[in-house]
Write a protein that binds this DNA or RNA. Structure first.
Lengths: 190, 190
DNA sequence: GGCTTTATTGAGCGATCACTCAAGTATATA
DNA sequence: TATATACTTGAGTGATCGCTCAATAAAGCC
């Protein structure tokens, strides 16, 4: 009896993610979303409930894809290889909406007001950090990294470096590829 | 003949900087500013012209004080000592409105829309980077760092590390002091 | 085709945004 | 004390914010 929606929900979430990623939470109005997603207000709210609910979906999508990409990279290059390659890939990603990490941008924008979305971003950041720690642990188990290092600490530092790199990569007067190379080189000295 | 303002302009700029620093540009409304600065709209606009004009003043103030603090630290501890101490000081600053760098937050929030304030923040970030490069050059001249390093590249990486550190320091589940110690330790290996 | 169910539409809601301005008040000079 | 010159006040501006909802259109099942 029912009628199917005319839109591809997954594609809309991806489009919304790109908008939010580039422009931030406050910087993206419903008018922006309606124009980009080609949805009138009524359809928008029927589909997603609210701006914040859609934003949460895009955060989820962003984090999931990030983890999946890193794990695929580790399958191909091994744990240390993935960690060493990731910084360069992030900087060279040409068709990404932005260089900076969407989770970090969200947290930076909204944490001061204790917004729910800031907490959600923090959760996903922790997930990513745990993912890094796993890779460092695997690298240790495979003898690629000395056992005298704490994987959690390495992961914390690595994530911090990556956040700085990705923020720097947004700037025009910074050679982010140099930074990426230096971060990768640091991993060789472990 | 005239009448003196009842407020201390410098103090108001510092208060506004703290608000903007914590809450960001879009996150700080004029009502917020009026409440914090105890100024009615009329007085506010007579004093500062616009929200953006005041924001620009606070960026200037933030950057100037940052440079001054670092140069004072270099006087006391020497160039390399200042660079090694700065990360710890930033993390331990207890009464700062936020850990993250105000320039970086501003740039991240507003660069996607080509806002004038994003460009201004970028200019000040470059000033800071040049300041770091100077200190690395001095450290080289004093023999504290090998001559085989490019001071500009060291400064770029150092600033990136610092931005990542300061962003990470906002999070509850990250031990930023560990990161700060690791960054300082890296400088010893140059 | 008739009926039910859902999607789409877009005018418009109250709230808040940055900001203005005319009226009132206080102060330094004459 | 009188006057000129600011500063202070706060109601109110149009624009935009996220969002609602009644009306209309379209699709699946009988």
């Amino acid at each position: 009896m029912p009628r199917k929606p005319a839109y591809d929900r997954d594609a809309l979430i991806a489009q919304a993610r790109d908008l939010f990623w580039r422009q931030g939470w406050a910087g993206t109005s419903l008018k922006d979303l309606e124009n980009a997603l080609k949805l009138k207000p009524g359809s928008f709210y029927a589909a997603f409930g609210s701006k914040d609910a859609l934003y949460a979906l895009t955060l989820e999508r962003y984090a999931d894809e990030g983890v999946a990409r890193l794990e695929a990279l580790a399958q191909e290059l091994g744990p240390l290889g993935a960690l060493k390659t990731q910084p360069r890939l992030v900087v060279e990603a040409a068709n990404a909406p932005a260089k900076a990490c969407m989770l970090a941008k969200t947290y930076a924008e909204l944490s001061a007001k204790d917004h729910d979305l800031a907490q959600l971003a923090a959760i996903h950041l922790s997930r990513m950090k745990a993912c890094f720690a796993d890779l460092f642990r695997q690298a240790q188990a495979q003898g690629q990294i000395g056992l005298d290092h704490d994987p959690e600490r390495l992961a914390t530092r690595y994530q911090s470096d990556l956040l700085g790199l990705r923020l720097s990569a947004e700037r025009g007067d910074v050679d982010a590829r140099q930074i990426a190379a230096d971060i990768a080189a640091d991993l060789d000295r472990l």
